[in-house]
Design a binder for these strands. Structure first.
Length: 270
DNA sequence: AGCCAGGACAAGT
DNA sequence: ACTTGTCATGGC
């Protein structure tokens, strides 16, 4: 294992990035670093001054830069959004969050599982999926598990993961992807409105879950997922009612809606 | 013990 | 088109 050093580490907080609720598989180690699995690759990531250290069984720098969204200029994004004083305050509390470019299938299932659920239990169910149906991966003398493919979940008995009423939703997503009723790669070429409707063909995928997938996997930053936390904080900070949120967000944050949403979500949960 | 959770869906107005 | 009850499970 060789540690990779990346120079441009400004605006990257591992803690905020991995614990802001966009992903569910990164775990903090005793030394403050984070270990996670992405598409079968395990990585331990830590911040040392202005250097990001990545120890992994995949030493392709490009892969991790892509996943961590390291090539994007977050200083520019934060500056743009800070024109709004309320957002400026939210950013000051959440600076360092980066929006990960997550694997499509994992992101879809994770947010199907997220509905009417709390983050600790979402993590538990996702982990159970991986342990029961994914592949074993050895890293640093410990065992990790990849996120199971649609094939690995096909016709599986999902009772052990205790997903409750979401189990039938997971299986519907599995079937639609296996049967090619849903082609996740085709979504790259769709705009956000088309893509949202396309994903909502899957049972258990409504507008909120679809928006999260579009934001956290497809990097469609013009969406503004509205969950219970967002509804509360937008009402509190901007006095905007739920029904008006979509229009409000697109007018105020434009192409930066997704980033704005994360800063607000982070503040709301703080 | 009881309320709530990064909601969606069906049934009812 | 808007409102309401229901859905499994477990965290707090």
């Amino acid at each position: 294992m060789i540690a990779l050093k990346i120079a441009n580490s400004s605006h990257f907080s591992p803690k905020r990035t991995f614990e802001c609720g966009q992903c569910f598989r990164w775990q903090e180690e005793e030394d403050g670093s984070y270990t996670g699995v992405v598409e079968g690759h395990v990585a331990n990531i830590s911040l040392d001054g202005s250097t990001i250290n990545i120890d992994s069984n995949n030493l392709d720098l490009q892969f991790w830069e892509d996943y961590l969204d390291l090539k994007r200029d977050y200083a520019k994004i934060e500056k743009n959004l800070s024109k709004d004083s309320i957002m400026k305050k939210a950013i000051s509390k959440g600076t360092g969050i980066r929006l990960l470019k997550q694997p499509l299938w994992e992101c879809l299932l994770s947010f199907i599982i997220s509905q009417n659920n709390n983050i600790p239990r979402i993590k538990k169910i996702v982990q159970a999926l991986c342990v029961n149906y994914g592949n074993e991966i050895k890293f640093r003398n410990k065992t990790y598990y990849s996120f199971p493919t649609p094939e690995q979940l096909h016709n599986a008995n999902l009772d052990p993961i205790k997903a409750g009423f979401r189990e039938k939703y997971i299986l519907d997503a599995v079937n639609k992807v296996i049967n090619n009723d849903i082609d996740l790669n085709s979504i790259w070429e769709q705009n956000s409105d088309e893509a949202e409707k396309y994903l909502m063909q899957i049972k258990g995928v409504g507008n909120k879950v679809a928006d999260c997938v579009l934001l956290f996997a497809y990097q469609k930053f013009d969406v503004f997922p509205k969950d219970v936390w967002i509804k509360r904080i937008v009402k509190d900070l901007y006095n905007i009612e739920e029904k008006e949120i979509a229009l409000f967000a697109s007018n105020k944050f434009k192409d930066y809606c997704g980033f704005a949403q994360q800063y607000l979500f982070f503040q709301a949960r703080d």
